[in-house]
């Protein structure tokens, strides 16, 4: 069960190492091409995924 959470850590690789899926100008956000804001968005998504992973796999004897 615990091991299942490791899937969270795989998602950023799938999202960011596949340029053909995001190498586009549209849709734009604040005048920024998709290529740029999509990858910047993954920074935040990755932080959230890691935060969730750290929370669900924490050990109580750790400080």
């Amino acid at each position: 069960m615990r091991r299942g959470w490791y899937a969270l850590l795989v998602l950023p690789f799938v999202g960011t190492l596949t340029p053909p899926i995001y190498n586009h100008v549209h849709p734009m956000l604040f005048g920024m091409p998709f290529f740029y804001w999509y990858q910047l968005a993954w920074v935040l998504v990755t932080a959230a995924l890691l935060g969730l992973f750290v929370f669900v796999t924490r050990e109580h004897h750790d400080v």
Partner: peptide, 20 residues
């Protein structure tokens, strides 16, 4: 141009690796 932006996915996926 765009190729130089590789630093962003680099600095993203470095963290799941670091965590493990």
């Amino acid at each position: 141009g765009a190729l130089g932006f590789f630093a962003v996915p680099y600095a993203t996926i470095a963290y799941p690796i670091a965590l493990v």
